[in-house]
């Protein structure tokens, strides 16, 4: 009994994070999980977009159904600037992030006068408008066929020209963003945001500028998505509008919700679950894959509306406090 208690009291968190980091470091090697490198790159990219949405959802309680538009803006800024205008890919990425952030800032003010379902509708509309623009402005974007031959990212003479190298690049960005977000959550701003989620009126009366915090998070989420989009096009060397449509936005929301709305690290979990499900597990079912995907989506939401990751975490907490056997309220 004593041993179990000691196990329970031990802080497993650093161990878990350390384990995760070592795993991340070793995974793309051929002797380990090299054949999954591309999948892991996509998980990293989607984690970046998902974290932004997690912040928005978890710390302001608002949902954006148009997050893929920011992902797409980053992608197209990088693609068009680096391919058509020969701008250095890193510079293109920064310009993309700034432009996307500015765009988000400009629309944030009018859009955040809306809430809940209405905000969801407005962001959905915005997302689809951007998608139509990507598709129709063919003279810049290459239209629905997209554009290929996008140059690779490089540091000096070191070119990120294989999935193996890009894996580390993407996860470097991804982990940096996760850490940054972690800091925000634990900062004064983060506490303010949680207060907003609790009660806007209460936090406003405490002198927190609610509108400004919401806008900050919205802009931050857009910048994350933009960076991910830039990395995405340099990874594929190709861009077309398709990943940035309504279903793209829905996928990001699903990842955020599976990962747990208020959980930064859950974003990795959510992105990984959804991608592994759709890219690996469901392949065995041939054409029935979308049927099963739809079914799983419903079941997960019905039985763990707070997110799978959060549910698992709460089991862990209860184990730690020795209340695993108790009935959940």
């Amino acid at each position: 009994m004593m041993n179990v208690e000691r196990l329970q009291r031990f802080n497993w968190r650093p161990v878990a994070i350390g384990f995760l980091l070592v795993l991340l470091l070793l995974m793309p090697f051929n002797w380990f999980m090299g054949q999954y490198t591309t999948l892991l790159v996509f998980i990293g990219l989607h984690t970046m977009v998902t974290v932004g949405l997690c912040l928005l959802l978890g710390y302001t309680g608002q949902v954006s159904l148009g997050q893929a538009a920011f992902y797409g803006l980053g992608a197209y800024f990088s693609a068009v600037l680096s391919k058509t205008y020969g701008v250095n890919p890193w510079l293109a990425m920064i310009i993309g992030a700034i432009a996307t952030g500015t765009f988000a800032y400009v629309i944030a003010y009018p859009i955040f006068r809306l809430k809940g379902n209405y905000l969801a509708m407005a962001t959905l509309g915005l997302g689809i408008i951007m998608y139509v623009l990507f598709r129709q402005m063919a003279q810049y974007t290459g239209g629905p066929d997209g554009m290929g031959g996008i140059p690779q990212l490089a540091i000096g003479s070191f070119v990120f020209d294989t999935p193996f190298k890009r894996y580390y690049l993407v996860w470097f960005f991804c982990l940096s963003i996760l850490l940054l977000s972690q800091n925000i959550v634990n900062s004064r701003t983060g506490r303010a945001l949680r207060a907003i989620h609790g009660s806007e009126a209460a936090s406003a009366s405490l002198g927190i500028n609610v509108a400004q915090f919401k806008m900050k998070i919205f802009v931050l989420a857009a910048v994350y998505a933009s960076l991910a989009g830039s990395l995405f096009v340099h990874h594929l060397s190709f861009v077309n509008p398709q990943p940035f449509g309504f279903l793209g936005s829905v996928m990001i929301v699903v990842m955020a919700v599976v990962g747990g709305l208020a959980s930064i690290w859950g974003a990795i979990f959510g992105a990984a679950m959804v991608r592994i499900l759709s890219d690996e597990l469901l392949l065995r079912f041939g054409e029935l894959d979308i049927v099963i995907y739809g079914l799983i989506l419903m079941l997960v939401m019905i039985f763990t509306p707070e997110g799978l990751f959060v549910r698992l975490k709460s089991y862990y907490r209860r184990w730690q406090t020795g209340r695993l056997g108790e009935v959940e309220l």
């Binding site: 980091l21 051929n30 996860w171 850490l179």
Partner: peptide
């Protein structure tokens, strides 16, 4: 904890620079 992570990240990137040769098929 944060410090450990902050040390590990550049290390990660540095490794990424060195390792590619080993990762070849």
């Amino acid at each position: 904890m944060r410090k450990v992570l902050l040390v590990m990240l550049p290390a990660l990137l540095a490794l990424a620079m060195v390792i590619p040769a080993l990762g070849c098929a």
